[in-house]
Amino acid sequence: MADTALAEQMISTPDRAIAVRKGGTRDARFHLLTFAAAVVVLLIFIGVMFALVVGAMPAIRAFGWSFLISTAWNPVTEKYGALPSIYGTLVTSFLAMLFAVPIGIGIAIFLTEICPRPLRRPIGIAIELLAGIPSIIYGIWGLFIFAPWFQEHLQTPFIDAVANIPFLQTIFAGPPYGIGLFTSSLILSIMILPFISSVTRDVFETVPPMLKEAAYGLGCTTWEVMWRVVLPFARTGVVGGAMLALGRALGETMAVTFVIGNDHHIHQSLFAPATTISATIANEFTEAVGDLYVPSLIELGLILFFITFIVLASAQIMLRALERRAGGVS
């Protein structure tokens, strides 16, 4: 009884009431502060879209939809078109994914199934560290080391070898420059390799061991377990990880700018120089003069933002679905 009375007395003390009210206002203020910071993230996103649309407006007005399909790129006559850049972006990213996805999944299989246990962590960490190396390092390596080596040891013999094969002679034609579309794709694929394998490995590790053990119990070989049980279970995650890597590849600037050759023509040969959206912007932005040059480059940026947004949003949706499922399983 006495305790309750004491408690009531404490609560009704004016000091305490003030403290509680103070805590309340401080709470509300802090809540508002964190909310404002979250709004900043939203504002950045809206700002990016808004700034790109405003900056590109003169070019959008001047060229309309034809900007997307025009191959012109002439600062003198002020005629600009995005097709060569879009083509280069899509082709380099596609080829890079073609090389990097199977190899990245192979590395993930190696890390989760084959690699001796004591080596798993160090190799896994090494791959994650490599994912953090800035792209300009890949660019400078590509320009000084890889392109000359590729030109001498692979490109020249390869062009000679396919010189009489109908389809291949067209897409691998031309003088061996070393730099070009194909070289860029190879460097991009090396660059996104760590992303794919680290995401894939993480997803493989979410596969319940019970499923694998059941398959082994039925007499499956290791490969059958991987191909029929682990991969189907991890499919969404692997695709999501690959999309994330594709987002990187599409927007990658420095690794590509060094070695693509910046040529606004669409060549049939994959060995020919080309350009990508980001390489065009990086190469030409600071030297752009005239009323439509900068807006055209910004419109290229807008197109790139649009493409990567779609790719990254689908990656998010897939990985989110996977997270929910993993949460349900455990």
């Binding site: 990016v48 700034a51 900056g55 940026g301």
Partner: peptide, 18 residues
């Protein structure tokens, strides 16, 4: 998460405009 992996060159264009 979109901003996290968006191409950094876009960021540059944004600040350039701003």
């Amino acid at each position: 998460d979109i901003l996290l992996s968006a191409p950094s060159i876009i960021t540059g264009l944004f600040i350039y405009e701003l």
